[in-house]
């Protein structure tokens, strides 16, 4: 039986997330490290106001998740697999030893900045539940135009798929999905059309930056966002970290794959429990818990009991 750590992406952030991290020396160490690298107070990143910027959001996600994953490590719990969703991939890459935390902070900051600059307004994402990826692909392909592009993006569960693109295009797809009987079809509160070809230039720039970063062979397999494969090769991880921003995250397959590889306990790093909620539905045969919901001590207890 194997253990996986999962790292959440955007949408999981919340006000005060860095202030409410579990009390553990390893957590404080990571916060201190972040403070040194970023030359400022990290505790200003997680205010409501600051979290309006995707840069603060992504940095906060990285810091929070890495801080807690290091607490597990300090307590002697090492997972068998690490998987992150979108921005969460950087936390996963740090966890599995492929990328240094300090390098990750720098790349994530750049990632946020590039995304913010790419499409200042008129773009975003939506989410459809009740249809599979194939159906959403069909609807989006029929509606997308040069003027109002819209693409299917993240496949979060068998029946939960996001779309990314121009707001008018997204609205049309949501309308169409609603008419065809989707359970829900909603606009998300994000201003960047992530995980679709519109962000190709962001991916390219990130790749240029990552080319100068030391990416190592991971100590444990890293789940690739774009390919939904377990990666053990540093170059493949580098590509995944750069290009996941312009490709769909195949979370549904990633979580299934972890399970097929023998994972029976999945622990979600903070903040939130978005991935845990998805995993519980997709993986009835495994146990999914989140540090935010269950607390660090309980998760540590479970992990230790599980690994013994």
């Amino acid at each position: 039986m194997k253990l996986a750590f999962v790292f959440p992406g955007q949408g999981s952030q919340k006000n005060g997330m860095l202030h409410s991290l579990p009390d553990h020396p390893a957590v404080l160490e990571v916060l201190q490290e972040a403070r040194e690298v970023m030359g400022g107070n990290v505790f200003t990143l997680d205010t409501d106001k600051a979290l309006k910027s995707t840069v603060s959001v992504q940095l906060s996600l990285l810091i929070a998740s890495v801080a807690v994953s290091k607490a597990f490590k300090a307590e002697g719990v090492m997972p068998d697999f690490a998987a992150g969703h979108s921005a969460g991939a950087f936390g996963a890459a740090v966890m599995c030893g492929a990328v240094d935390f300090t390098d990750a902070l720098e790349i994530v900051k750049l990632r946020g900045e590039l995304m913010e600059q790419a499409f200042p307004s008129g773009y975003g994402m939506g989410v459809i539940t009740g249809f599979d990826a194939r159906t959403v692909n069909e609807i989006a392909a029929a509606i997308s135009s040069e003027e109002y592009p819209v693409y299917p993006s993240n496949i979060n569960a068998a029946d939960q798929v996001t779309i990314s693109g121009s707001i008018p295009g997204i609205k049309k797809v949501l309308d169409q999905a609603g008419q065809r009987g989707a359970r829900t079809a909603e606009l998300l509160n994000v201003s960047v059309p992530s995980h679709c070809p519109l962000l190709k230039s962001v991916g390219d720039s990130l790749y240029d930056k990552l080319a100068s970063v030391n990416v190592r062979v991971p100590a444990i397999p890293y789940a690739g966002n774009r390919t939904a494969r377990l990666l053990r090769d540093s170059e493949q991880i580098r590509e995944d970290l750069a290009f996941n921003v312009s490709h769909p995250v195949r979370w549904y397959e990633i979580s299934s794959l972890l399970c097929e590889h023998g994972t029976r306990l999945l622990i979600e790093m903070p903040p939130g429990n978005v991935l845990t909620t998805l995993n519980k539905r997709t993986l009835p045969g495994a146990r999914s818990v989140s540090v935010d919901e269950n607390g660090l001590d309980n998760c540590l207890f479970l992990a230790k009991k599980f690994c013994s």
Binding site: A228, R229, E253, S256, L257, E260, H261
Partner: peptide, 13 residues
């Protein structure tokens, strides 16, 4: 069944 995604992936790869 219990390895159906990996089967498909490994065949593809």
């Amino acid at each position: 069944g219990p390895q159906s995604l990996r089967m498909a992936q490994m065949l593809e790869d």
